[in-house]
Design a protein around this nucleic acid. Sequence first.
DNA 1: ATCCTCCCCTAC
DNA 2: TAAGGTAGGGGAGGAT
Length: 887
Amino acid sequence: MSRQDEKFSDNGFEAWGGYMQAKISKLEEQFSSKASKENQVSNIFKGISIFVNGYTVPTADELKDLMAQHGGVYHTYQRHEDIVIASNLPDTKVKNMTLTNIVKPEWITESIASNRLLDYKDFLLYSNKHSQPKLKFQKSTRMSNDTKKKEELLTDSWVKPMNNLDIERSLPDSSYVIVDSTNSLIDIKNTDTSTKTAVDPNFISEFYSNSRLHHISQLGACFKQYINDLREESNYIFTAHINLRDRIKSYNCHSSFSMNFEYNKVIMHIDMDCFFVSVGLRKHPELKGKPVAVTHSKGGQSQTKRSGVNRSVEFELYRQKQAGKLTKAGLDVNNIEISTRIDNIGDEGNKFGSMSEIASCSYEARAKGICNGMFMGAALRLCPELQTIPYDFDGYKEVAYTLYNTIAQYTLDIEAVSCDEMYVHCTDLLTNLDVSPEDFATVLREEIREKTGCPCSTGFGGNRLQARLATKQAKPNGQFFLTANLIEDFMFDINLKDLPGVGRQTSQKLESLGHQTCGSLQSLTLASLQQHLGNKTGAQLFDQCRGRDRNPLTYHTVRKSVSAEVNYGIRFETNDQCYHFLNQLSIEVQSRMQQFKVKGKCITLKLMVRAEEAPVETAKYLGHGFCDVINKSVTLLEATNDSQIILQEVISLCKKLNIDPKEMRGIGIQVTKLEQLNDKLQKSKGAISKFLTNVTKDERKDKPNLCMKNEPVSPKRPLASPRRKSPSRSPNKRKGRPPKNSKLSTSKTLMDKFLQCPAIKNEFKSPIKNKSKDIEEPKKNIENIETERIVKSGLLGFSWKEVRELLRAWFDSGQPPKQCDVDMIISYMENMICNRNIDKLYILLNFFRRRIQEINNEIWNEVLNYVLEQVQSAMLVVYNKRLYFED
DNA sequence: ATCCTCCCCTAC
DNA sequence: TAAGGTAGGGGAGGAT
Ligand SMILES: Nc1ccn([C@H]2C[C@H](O)[C@@H](COP(=O)(O)OP(=O)(O)OP(=O)(O)O)O2)c(=O)n1
Ligand SMILES: [Mg+2]
Ligand SMILES: [Mg+2]
């Protein structure tokens, strides 16, 4: 292909160069007229089409086949949830959008022939002058040293003036193009630095896709629902019990004497160690052992300064507010250093000026005083060599899912706290299995580390408080047992701030009373604590500082409110813009209410409004700054989940408040007084049984793009040929277990949205079904007097003994087996799997096997293999394990 | 006493 | 640049 051939068509190019949203309709027009004619359009997603002249970007499935044909290992990435990209580079930096590899067939052939991987050198980056800052930015992007060097070397030759391409007229000023070495268009970037506020059309979705807090909120809620649903599942089986003792032995960690916990209860708390960092480090192993933080900021580079920013004014307001609270709490503000989150931040443009928040930091970073939630600027002062890694939201989802499923294989007495954390009631579990807490902890933590590649810590105690404090003690990557004999000494030294529920305000209040540690607080009477902090809080604290906690674990959660708010990027000019945004929020709230199957009566509008004294330009870019918070609510006569009713109410509240839209900095809608919608019908049957009986029908429902959304990163999973399996059941495509069936549980929708992360290890290919079809014969059943009954109800109505007799008759009949009979026995066995009937299933299968081996002819052997495969598939789905047979 | 509304605080 | 969301517990103070 010559360069000339690769020139882009004007239309195609303009489509890219324009602002997407504005041109959607035009695009679609072009699409329909062009597609038929020239076959140049590869894909259309959400109205954005990719035009690449002379080359069609393959679809995900085509890519899979393509790669399979070439025998290459490939990796797929998804960007913006709409564009699929594949590369045979294992670590293509799609995330930062510095480079996009789209694999062409020729490249694959070529690279295989020349025995090399595609490399950065295979791409050229063209740019117009406006993109220069962007390129500088890329240069200082944190990457591995290796990559960085390479990039620096290449940068000069990469940057070509846009006019070499003779196309800049169709681009907005601030765009640049990425093309490959043959000039074929790879991507167009926009370096437009104009601020993107809530007024912009795609603001909400972009914000949500980048907001860590949004992600962990939604994910956490999912797991609460998930536990609710699992606990309602009557056919649930705890598979981890099966080989627990063997695993304990293999870790060689039998404990010598038993432990005593208070109240004779064993409560476990488990929490991933620096969750976001651990997950992120899987992709950046070279940074292990260094101070690392997960943040949007790349660290180190100075930003451009916005005009009108006066950080010190805003910071001073925060300090004053805090000082006011301290005074109220009885402290003498003049003698006390007020510490706030905004201390040690430099000015904008300063090396230490970044106000990007650190979501999580490694323990090496914590050693320097950095902690979660800190601003990047302040953190860099504490540790200038702090490394940053980007967010990996899919990774968190997958690891969290694995964590929960792992624990759920032992027990469902789980209180979900958040996506990386839960309480587990272990008393019965450990008693029944006769396992010591130490052995359990060791095996469990190793299991999780092995499955996820991330470390976690567990703490054990007689109540939730003790368990929690024990976890803190255990971290990082450890376990701690707060047994009855240790509690008194242990509690004495605990900082009040470390008690759950005691945050900055409470601890400062207590400090003003002269107490910093639990030991010290124990001298206060219940009455005086209650007097200072209120009845409940006082009593709670009185208990807590003695290591007591009466609150039981709550396995089943009942939702009390649904809300959506955005306090970032809110910069309205007009009331209409505000209402328009409220409409989007209403729709968001509606969709969440539908997910949770609730309606609500009380609607609250929350506004954050710039405080009078606060500067108009906020310290944090597009942040909310120093604000007054205003809430106003209305109670309806009838519960609703209709976005339009919500919108109408919320607008009316907004009008009553009469706030200048220009001053709004945050806006949210909350719905309370919830009523559960009736969905009894949907919950009538356990998910597992239904799942199994519907599995074949269900399978087709997987959308192709979902299949690759979360490529499992389980270290054990082979990067297998992704070729789609033919009609045989493919449980490995099911998103792991415990199973969740679509039409059944409320969590299905949630899980679909957030938890599509199977970590199933064993690939399972069995095309036998096709072969078996060949032996299918006209329908005629087992030669048995009860044929009718069987046909009608399957084998399910039969007792296990009866089935065994039927089987015996079948084997002895001397006729070749028929597909329908085989299917029937399989569904009977699947049913046993659902009904915790593994023991009997095992016996039945052994019987089945023995008899067939006795018959010893090819067809029957095939039947045996087929049945075994199917049973093992079902086992994988339900238990994530296969049955073990001795040979 | 108990409930309601509007906060504040905390956790992740 | 930056992506400061979301749910629950509970206190203050007024209405019942
Ligand atoms: N202010 C915060 C606190 C937490 N998180 C996110 C990132 C964390 O990784 C995750 C879990 O929070 P944890 O409190 O469990 O903290 P870590 O897991 O990071 O560390 P630790 O080892 O103390 O559990 O929640 C966040 O985004 N912002
Ligand atoms: Mg954690
Ligand atoms: Mg946690």
